[in-house]
Amino acid sequence: MKRALPSALSALPAALPAWAITAAALTVLVIVNGLLQPGFFDGTVLQSNLTTFLPLVLVAIGQTYVVLAGDIDLSVGAVAALVNVVTVTVIAATGDGPDAILAGLAAGLAVALACGLVNGLLIGVVGLQPMVATFGTAILFSALALRILPQAGLPVPDAYWQTYGGAVLGLPTVLLILLLAIGFVALLARRPFQTWLKAVGGNRGGAFQSGLDLRRIRLSAYLISALFAGFAALCLTGETASGDPLLGQSLGLGSVSAVALGGTLLSGGVGGAAGSILGALLLGMIGNVIFFAGLPFEYQTLVQGLIVLAALAGGVLVARRR
């Protein structure tokens, strides 16, 4: 009995990637949700679901590159909060027009890159432990966010959130953002950079001896992670139409879970951002299905935890088989 599960798994094709379980689970959840919720496949409902999931998808993509190099970034939620309050503050200070919105977006992304630079320098150059360092910078970034905007507020111009909730070039804006993100993931997967990242994460000593610039590679990963946290913050700003210094607190560990569900090893070296997108979507769909299954609310969080654990365990079993 003890061996029944692994042997059943070994009957699966050997080339099965680690995120296959996540993809299968996601498919099942989509079907189940479609049965439970009439109208699930309506355009507006799909768009509304994607709007809910998109911030975590973006953060999980960025987190993947850090994790591939064997590091971790716990500060992404705080980066998102800081970018959000900087964006709304800059917009409010420069007026109401399109120029103000663009200035706000640019300022927000600049702040995101600055946060990534701080993380990258502390970890890649100074050599601090990633978990402790990003835990510390998270506190710092949150405190800065509270300092800039002590209380939730500062509405953004209607054009901002109406564009985000609407369509650009005939496509829903959220779908366009997702497609662009997927394009970025596909592009980076073909670049030597991703191979270097895996080398740094999988065998740091070997990577160093083969002449890779570890500092620069790890720093770049933190820049990408913070940049995507910044993108997520801009999406959250579109979703909430205002600033909130306490925004995004669930993004840090949520993104790490999505990355792990997506088949990227937290020890580094193996995986990819495509799996993380599936992982983030899976986390979102679990919450949906539980709601539409009509479970009593007292049990919803419990069941959610159990399903996440089961999905993670499934992925581990598939990975261990090889």
Binding site: A152, G248, F291
Partner: peptide
Amino acid sequence: VVQSATVDAQGQIGQVRNFINQ
């Protein structure tokens, strides 16, 4: 229909969306 969990504002927006879609 009850949705009750410790979430951030974004998570609670998700709760509201579920109600709308329902």
